[in-house]
């Protein structure tokens, strides 16, 4: 288990997401990366109807990198790491925490490995009609376990194929610089990006 940095790659005007994904993939292949399968990170949201905890949101995330795990994140920041049966448990709670319709968001795409790095380029799709919202690139450096030690190293690597789009670590990652990294931290980073995408799409529809 290494350190993961999730970054959003901006899609310039006039180009489709698929084109940008193809450009990034061809750059990686030129660097010598090998394809190692597909990946999928998805998120569903439940909203509370309990009087003691009004407007509490529970996000249920799954990561194909940890297939037997289900991550439940509250908007207070607590993240519970549980077995896959937790999904069924949430269904049992549907009287108290019904699903918020149309809030399913997921990032899926190709997974590459290059030396000790694992790179995933995902297209983010939103809601029922699978509309494309953006590109999330995830870079994992497997040998190191502390983000503070290898942030500069990873930034240099990402600049190699993404250009200068990542200057500083994300807000969540800044708080975890000196602690051992866990898969739950990856999920929190994804959630941060998903929230940003949702806000953008809400702003657009208004």
């Amino acid at each position: 288990m290494g350190v993961v940095c999730v970054a959003s790659y901006p899609v310039p005007e006039g180009k489709s997401g698929q084109q940008i994904v193809d450009v990034l993939q061809s750059r990686l292949e030129q660097l010598g990366a090998e394809k190692s399968g597909q990946f999928n990170v998805d998120c569903e949201t439940y909203q509370s109807q309990v009087p003691s905890a009004q407007n509490r949101l529970v996000h249920l995330l799954h990561n194909s990198e940890q297939p037997a795990t289900c991550f439940a994140v509250l908007d207070t920041g607590t993240c519970l790491v549980a077995d896959n049966l937790f999904n069924l448990l949430m269904l049992k709670l549907k009287n108290f925490y019904p699903t918020r319709k149309g809030f399913k968001i997921e990032s899926k795409g190709q997974r590459y490995s290059l030396g000790d790095f694992i790179i995933k380029i995902g297209s983010v799709t939103f809601g029922q009609n699978i509309s494309f919202k953006g590109i999330l690139v995830e870079v994992e450096y497997c040998p190191c376990m502390v983000p503070g030690d290898c942030w500069d190293l990873m930034k240099e690597f990402m600049q190699g194929f993404m250009g200068n789009c990542v200057e500083n670590p994300s807000n969540y990652l800044k708080t975890k610089m000196d602690i051992m990294y866990t898969p739950a931290d990856t999920i929190q980073q994804y959630l941060e990006h998903f929230k940003t995408f949702r806000k953008e799409s809400l702003a657009v529809t208004r």
Binding site: L114, G115, D116, F117, D152, L153, F157, G160
Partner: peptide, 8 residues
């Protein structure tokens, strides 16, 4: 630089 041939 940090990386050469993807190694520190």
């Amino acid at each position: 630089t940090y990386l050469q041939d993807n190694l520190p």
